[in-house]
Design a protein around this nucleic acid. Structure first.
Lengths: 260, 260
DNA sequence: CGACTACTTGATGAATTTCAAGCCATGTGG
DNA sequence: CCACATGGCTTGAAATTCATCAAGTAGTCG
């Protein structure tokens, strides 16, 4: 399951890093998909690939750039549902012709491969293997949604931010090996992070300062440096190891669970 | 997309009810799956169908009973990821042999059909249509995960509880038509609701009392009555219509979004 | 009847939001 | 080149939602 990390020895092998924390696997459907894509679309930063309510009959694969999916409530509250990096599939819908329940927006300039839903069936019968791959991709997306869910629902702001950074970092590592401490391109604003985690940008700012002051990460001007992946994973993993250097308290939410 | 509601005129046709609030579609893969299931398993309430960390090479379809999926943090905090009713598929994993990133537990006594992953490919090549159905099921699960995500991240406790009840209610309606006000079997405890929404059971209790006092729902002893589906949807949909009877305030989180 | 679980209610406290400024970069037009 | 607007970040103080702690009630089950 950790195949995504194979290329990144320095960081990826860190024991804390190789935890269930990172369960964000997306099989490379890339090669297959690119063959059956009907066309490519390049989208400027900040514009929608598809919008909520729209009846989209296409599936997309990100080829380049960052994309995110979100839902917006009537009064403007926004929840970011997932980030899509090159290789990610986008726009699954249960039924043909169903309205999209969320929007997808390009975070940076991005290009996507467009797969018409109608032709998917045709390709599925020609190449049964493809079905498995698409199912795997969907399963991967489901897994990251589940990770986000426990981030938002059950982790502290600090834990959640650390965990999100870790997950995104691991996906970036998957694309090309990274060395700890190196600054990598990271186009999210604090507002994006907040909207992904159910926090306000203000509080993300404070949380990030906390992580910065501990020398764990550095995040400025669209560049992310993970200085201490171990400590980051420690914070994300929310284990009250008492190892945590500075006198920061983990809330005492211990509810001893009756072990089913 | 609202096919799930067709049988339930009294409630399903309510305008507020037919909102994007309910985007929880799961195609009936049932008939096909039951054919290829290798066996059935019946699980007593409160025990795991699969556990986190376990390498499960099966896919499951719930045939009877309620199941829920969850993740548990080291200190006992629990996040419920989804509820599975008869017809729901369970246990998608990106890779063969991957460790499950979450557990599935029977909420009531439940029976599931077991589909060995290995044979899935085989069946996919025999019946390409099946691939589309499984993809649809995964897309449905993804949609409900996304709805939960914005419940937990961006909705008030009251909105979130109302929205969750509404979503579950709509799924129950899909199985067999219900008339507003009728008590239906609803096996979740307040703790389950809390763990699904990132709240404590105590706070769910207070929230539920609020809904009860408004005459919107009644939830006691495993029985749920939706007395006023319209009001419930109103509360869930978080539209500041000023229609809300009692003097309850919706928090002023309006951030006017620069339209991308 | 005691043990247990689910639910209820109140009082207190903590995490996070809201409101309000100010800062720093970048870009734009006179 | 400067004025000025803009977007993202930062920080502080006050308000609020929600969690924690604590107790008590009701229903179930052996």
């Amino acid at each position: 399951m950790l195949s995504v990390l194979h290329n990144s020895p320095t960081i990826a092998n860190h024991p804390k890093f190789i935890a269930r924390a990172i369960s964000d696997d997306r099989l490379p459907v890339a090669s297959v998909i690119e063959e059956i894509a009907s066309q490519y679309r390049t989208i400027p930063a900040g514009t929608d690939i598809y919008s909520e309510g729209e009846a989209s009959d296409d599936l997309y694969m990100v080829v380049e750039g960052w994309v995110f999916q979100h839902q917006i409530l009537e009064d403007g509250r926004r929840q970011i549902l997932d980030f899509a990096l090159p290789g990610s599939l986008l726009g699954f819908q249960p039924d043909r012709g169903a309205e999209m329940t969320h929007a997808a927006e390009a975070l940076t300039r991005a290009t996507v491969a467009v797969i018409p839903r109608d032709r998917l069936g045709e390709f599925l019968s020609r190449d049964p293997e493809l079905g498995l791959r698409v199912i795997s991709a969907a399963a991967g997306a489901l897994n990251t949604a589940y990770e986000s869910l426990t981030d938002v629902g059950r982790r502290t702001a600090r834990e959640a931010v650390a965990h999100l950074l870790l997950r995104l970092f691991s996906r970036i590592c998957a694309a090309g090996p990274q060395v700890a401490g190196t600054a990598i391109s990271f186009p999210l604003t604090q507002e994006h992070i907040g909207d992904a985690l159910g926090l306000t940008a203000v509080h993300v700012c404070r949380t990030l300062r906390c992580l910065r002051e501990k020398g764990v990460v550095q995040l400025t001007n669209g560049k992310l440096s993970v200085l201490d992946p171990g400590a980051l994973a420690e914070i994300a993993g929310c284990m009250p190891d008492a190892e945590a250097s500075s006198g920061t308290q983990i809330p005492s939410r211990e509810r001893m669970r009756r072990v089913g």
